[in-house]
């Protein structure tokens, strides 16, 4: 590994010191892990009975099909909705007309600054299990839609900001050249600016997908289906809360790490090493001018 710029290449005495620190730190970590394992074992958390559900084909199917697939379906549904929402409101926020720009700004700021859980609970109890003129879906479908709609609104308004930043990151000359050859505003946006912006935005969209995937677990509050729900019914039946929490965490972390890898790959493949800092662009810092 290349030496960090924060410290010099250590000399012999420092090397010894670092080695002592390393050994001490490793020892401390080993002790902590060993204590945790011993404690779990002492409480009988490694007994086969507690882990049996996760080795039984029926439960594995339940976890993977009812759990994982439903969770991913919710996340994908939400992210597709969010991309549409994000493009519509992101472009609307850049409109030249005040009566389009302001409402779009209010909608985006509203959904961005509010906890997604608040929206989810409102949607679920207000529309999906409402007793007065609602849809009266007391089964899991109501929760499913509450989660997808709430996540669409929240992630969509985050993506609206990303779209705006992505378009702002396209060099000014592109739009000017397009106007110069006689394109209209809509043409400039759809043919010139958005296609170039999308390339920059892809990693941001995928990281937003990680957020959406994690947030599907908020469906716990509205009895939505998915991994959390399946886990809940497993630990209610077998009283194996610790193993269940462990298995759920492994599934979620694995899925998210895969998505993160995908985002990194896409960043390299489509955006290239030249980093366009979308956060800086969102803050209105023009790097080319600086």
């Amino acid at each position: 590994m290349a030496a960090s710029v924060l410290f010099d290449a250590p000399g012999p005495r420092t090397q010894v010191r670092h080695r002592i620190y390393s050994v001490a730190a490793s020892a401390a970590i080993v002790v902590v892990i060993a204590y945790a394992l011993w404690k779990l074992n002492d409480d009988g958390q490694f007994e086969y009975a507690l882990w049996e559900p996760f080795l039984t084909p029926d439960f594995i199917t339940a976890l993977l099909v009812d759990g994982l697939v439903t969770t991913v379906t919710m996340a994908v549904g939400a992210i597709i909705g969010a991309v549409v929402f994000g493009f519509v409101f992101g472009v609307a926020k850049m409109s030249d007309h005040r009566f389009i720009r302001w409402p779009a700004w209010i909608v985006v700021e509203f959904f961005r600054a509010m906890p997604v859980l608040l929206l989810m609970i409102f949607l679920y109890f207000g529309f999906f299990v409402s007793t007065q003129g609602g849809f009266l879906w007391i089964d899991q479908r109501g929760g499913f839609f509450a989660v997808v709609i709430a996540l669409t609104c929240y992630n969509g308004s985050v993506l609206a900001e990303v779209v705006r930043a992505g378009v702002a990151a396209v060099p000014k000359g592109q739009a000017e050249a397009a106007y110069a050859i006689g394109m209209r505003k809509t043409q400039v946006m759809t043919l010139i600016l958005l296609p170039q912006a999308v390339k920059v935005m892809l990693p941001a969209i995928i990281s937003q997908m990680v957020v959406a995937l994690k947030d599907t677990s908020l469906g716990y509050a509205v009895a939505a289906p998915g991994l959390t729900k399946v886990g809940q019914s497993i630990y209610k039946e077998f009283h194996n809360q610790v193993p269940t929490a462990f298995v759920l965490a492994v599934l979620y972390v694995g899925l998210n790490l895969l998505l993160t890898l995908l985002a990194t790959w896409i960043q390299k493949r489509f955006v290239g090493e030249k980093k366009i800092d979308i956060v800086a662009a969102a803050a209105g810092i023009d790097k080319d001018r600086a």
């Binding site: 779990l40 994690k214 599907t216 677990s217 716990y220 809360q241 929490a245 965490a249 979620y252």
Partner: peptide
């Protein structure tokens, strides 16, 4: 250690951490 901790915890849903501390942790004391 710090890198592993960060990438594990930030990829775990918050609800799951709450579930752990509410329903799993009391079992192990």
């Amino acid at each position: 250690v710090a890198a592993v901790y960060v990438s594990l915890v930030r990829n775990t849903p918050l609800v799951l951490i709450f579930i752990f501390f509410h329903f799993a942790a009391p079992i192990i004391g």
